[in-house]
Structure formats: structure tokens, C-alpha cells
Design a protein around this nucleic acid. Structure first.
Ligand SMILES: [Mn+2]
Ligand SMILES: [Mn+2]
Ligand SMILES: [Zn+2]
Ligand SMILES: [Zn+2]
Lengths: 132, 132
DNA sequence: TTACTAGTTTATAATGATTCTAAAAAGGTG
DNA sequence: CACCTTTTTAGAATCATTATAAACTAGTAA
């Protein structure tokens, strides 16, 4: 199977549930943004076995910790995740409440001039809010 | 009083509670970041009358809607607000879980090259995550 | 001052996303 | 298989936030 090695190499047992969630998350042509609830719906549609919500939470957080998913910093009552783990940014359409990818190439180079003593930059993320 | 006109001009009645919250939020030399809980604590310390948590939520949201406070897009279990309403950005210290202001001048100009049909840019916010 | 009205405050309940718990099930190894 | 660890799961708990609805207040006009 496609994802068994990936999981083993991360120290995660390739359980049936994790493999099925991998299919839903990573087997599509395009990357996408999702909340846990949306993922739960997607799984219900695409996977015949039932996967408990607790497992979906556990798995998403495990994958995030391993770097297979990214959390998107945005104010919402639900947490947004991204299967696009490349360094990139987002539009947020306030009316539609939808995220849209903004590739690094679509943003001029960002130069952080201020330095914080003893700290180094882990990531730089831009959120562009859109209105009509 | 200092804030009565400000509130009236916004169509908000200058109630005792709102005026007291104004004192706590806007009467300090420096701007600051806060969660509702932190603000509640601050109010308990600085204001002799009791203000209900519901009123604090109501007031913060009213002030945000009027543009006297900004919500900071960040993933946290609590919503962060900012009394600094100027166009600016943030460091987020992952270890300390603290926000630090990053003025526009401390970031090179940000040029969003991609356009979304029928939408215009309302804001551009940068979040720089810091690690040790 | 006295109504009148709309806006505000408040205690309290409800909501809902997320996390916790602890027992059952499954994976990995020899 | 036997053993041990990890994982899954249903359900309960947590807790930030929002809703409710009754009491109160600010503003205004008689
Ligand atoms: Mn999380
Ligand atoms: Mn809010
Ligand atoms: Zn994305
Ligand atoms: Zn700030």
C-alpha cells in the first residue's frame, strides 16, 4: 500500500483507519482546506467503514505533528487544516468564509527586519482578507 | 469624560460599564494584546464595580465592530484582541505563547500579485512564528 | 418630573468544538 | 500463539462563546 511506509517511517502504525484517512486526505489531485467536521463528512462519503470522531481528531493531530498537515492561523470557531504543506499563504473570503491558496510566488518576497533576541523564525504566513 | 463623545459618535450609549472598559483598554500608554479572560482579570483589578462577563463579551465585540479593537488571526483556544488598531503584523512566540507587535516598517512592502475576481483586499496580516 | 422607548446589562442556560477517559481492539514481535 | 504497546472508540467532561429573557438605564419628549 501507498501509505504504509510513510506511516511506518513516522513511527505511526499503519492502521486501517489511518490508511483510509490518508486516502481521503492525500489521494486527490488537488490539495484542500478543511475543518474536522468537513473531514468527518468527507470520510462518511468516501469510506465504507465507520471511523469515530475521536480517531479523526487523533489522526489529524498526529499527521499535523509529523508535518503531513498544516494548521491555518485564522479566527474561526473551528480549526482549519491544509493538505498543502508547502510554504504558502492564504486569501480569506469573508463573505463566503472560504480559504484560497496564495502561492509564495504570488506574494513579493517578505523580509522581516525586526529580530527577537534568542528566537528564530519558524514560519511566515500571510492572511489576506477579501471583501466585495 | 474622555470617551463619552467617542461612544456617542459610534452610536453606542456611554454606559458606566463601557466607560470603565474604555479606561482599561485605552487609557494606557502602550497598546496590548488580550483574551477575554485576561481582560476580565484586568477589569477585576482596575475597576471597583463588577462587570459581568457577558457585558465584557458584548463590549469587546461592539468595539471590534466599530474598529476600536482588532481581532488577531491566530490558532488558539481563545480569541486574541489587540488595542493597536494600526495596520501592523505579529510575531508569535510558540514557547511563551505571546504575541509581539511587528510594525509595518519592520516588514518589507507586501505586494499581493494574485487577484480574485470581484473581490478587493480588506487587510493583509503577517504572522511570524518564533521558536528557540 | 414623568412617561415612553430602545438600548444595555446581567445571571444563567445552552451550544458546540475539542479533549479526556478507560476499556476493548489491533498491530508488531518473537 | 503470547505478550506488550499503540490505537480506537463511545461517551463524558471541559470550557470558550453565544443565546435568553428579565431587570435596568440612557435619552428624549411631553
Ligand atoms: Mn490542535
Ligand atoms: Mn468574536
Ligand atoms: Zn492552503
Ligand atoms: Zn498587535
Amino acid at each position: 500500500m501507498k501509505y504504509i511506509e510513510k506511516l511506518r517511517n513516522s513511527g505511526l502504525r499503519p492502521t486501517k483507519q489511518r490508511l483510509q484517512i490518508c486516502e481521503v486526505l492525500f489521494n486527490s489531485e488537488k490539495t484542500f482546506h478543511f475543518t474536522i467536521n468537513e473531514l468527518d463528512q468527507k470520510i462518511k462519503k468516501q469510506v465504507s467503514d465507520k471511523i469515530s470522531l475521536a480517531t479523526i481528531y487523533n489522526t489529524v493531530h498526529a499527521f499535523e505533528k509529523k508535518g503531513y498537515l498544516k494548521q491555518i492561523p485564522i479566527n474561526s470557531n473551528q480549526t482549519y487544516f491544509d493538505t498543502n504543506i508547502s510554504d504558502h499563504h492564504h486569501f480569506y473570503d469573508l463573505k463566503e468564509e472560504k480559504l484560497i491558496d496564495l502561492e509564495n510566488a504570488d506574494v513579493g518576497p517578505i523580509n522581516i527586519l525586526k529580530k527577537i533576541n534568542g528566537k528564530k523564525i519558524k514560519s511566515v504566513e500571510v492572511l489576506v482578507k477579501l471583501e466585495d
